[in-house]
Amino acid sequence: MILKEACVADFEALKTAVDSGANRIELNSNLAEGGTTPAIGTAKMAVDYCHSKNVKVIAMIRPRGGNFVYSKNELDVMKEDINFLSSINVDGFALGVISENHELDFNSIDFLTKNIKNKELVFHMAFDEIDRKHHKKAMEQLNNLRFNRILSHGTPYSGNLDIDYLREMISMSNNTLEILPGGGINSHNVNQICNLIGSQQAHGTHIV
């Protein structure tokens, strides 16, 4: 069975997705900007509803749209968001920080995650902005930081899905990290795409 992660930005969309068979939720605000940290009230209601249905909630940690290079103040905001969302029992966090030269910003990610316990960690599509020549090293670093998976198009070009490279990423990860494909995957093509990639999970705004 394919695990279907629905990307949503409000409670009504979340409820519809869960009631339609979503197995996991990525909770955001501002999907038009690529997804940002969810509102407090939405997050609390999401956790309560999803946990009553045995569905996990992964909260986006992203203070704004745009690039994934963050200032010290922005990192402090992200840390506070993580602390609050941990207190209301979200199941995990989707986040990503890269450097100006398109490598993983290990120190910033360590700052954000070092005190997180018993939560899933997902490096979101900021990974697609990392130069491919650094992907294997980035995967090793993320594994050392206790990340569970990487959400990826397999390409830096938004809206596209590079099936061949996603297969390569699964091989490159050597079973240390899950590769979660996302980008143009919907309820009509999810099974076909997952079969082509060799994935048992998929992510999308219309996944159910």
Rank of each mutant, 00 (worst) to 15 (best):
N148G: 07
V69G: 03
R146C: 07
N83E: 10
L180C: 06
F111A: 01
C194R: 00
G159D: 10
F123G: 10
A17Y: 11
D128P: 11
I40F: 13
E100Q: 11
S187T: 03
Q141N: 13
L142S: 02
H188E: 05
Q141R: 04
K114I: 06
N67P: 03
I58S: 10
F106L: 15
G41M: 07
A13C: 09
K136F: 13
H134L: 11
C7H: 03
G34R: 07
L145E: 01
V97Y: 12
K15A: 07
D162M: 11
L95G: 03
M60G: 01
T42R: 03
L75D: 05
L121F: 10
S152K: 08
N73H: 07
L95H: 14
T205E: 09
I163P: 02
I82L: 02
M125D: 14
D110E: 15
S108G: 09
G204C: 13
K56M: 05
F93S: 09
E129C: 09
R132F: 09
E129I: 06
K72I: 15
A202L: 03
N118D: 15
T16D: 01
C7Q: 02
V18F: 04
F147I: 03
V55A: 14
V57F: 08
L161Y: 03
F123Y: 05
H135S: 01
Y70C: 12
S199T: 08
D91N: 15
T113M: 11
G21M: 13
S20G: 10
G41K: 08
E100K: 15
I109S: 07
S87I: 05
K117T: 13
V122D: 02
K79G: 06
G34C: 10
S152P: 07
S29D: 14
S171V: 06
G198K: 01
G198W: 00
D105G: 10
N67V: 11
E80Q: 12
I130P: 04
P181C: 05
L104C: 15
A94H: 07
S187M: 01
P156V: 04
V69E: 00
N118V: 01
L14A: 05
E178P: 00
S99H: 00
K117I: 04
L31S: 10
L142T: 02
N118A: 07
A126Q: 07
R24V: 00
L3W: 04
D48R: 13
S87A: 08
S108Q: 13
A46H: 04
E12I: 08
I207S: 07
S87D: 14
T16F: 01
L31D: 06
N186S: 09
F127R: 05
G183M: 11
L27K: 12
H206E: 07
G96I: 04
A22F: 08
Q192T: 07
H203V: 00
L112E: 11
D10R: 01
L112Q: 06
R64H: 12
V55Q: 07
R167H: 13
V77Y: 13
N115D: 15
F123S: 07
I185C: 02
N23C: 05
R146K: 15
A17L: 05
S86D: 10
F68D: 06
E5A: 02
S71G: 09
F68R: 04
L31C: 12
N118R: 10
A6I: 03
L95K: 13
I150H: 11
H51R: 15
K4I: 00
G41W: 11
S108R: 15
P38L: 13
I58H: 11
L161W: 02
N89E: 08
S187I: 00
L121Y: 08
K114P: 00
V69Y: 01
L121I: 14
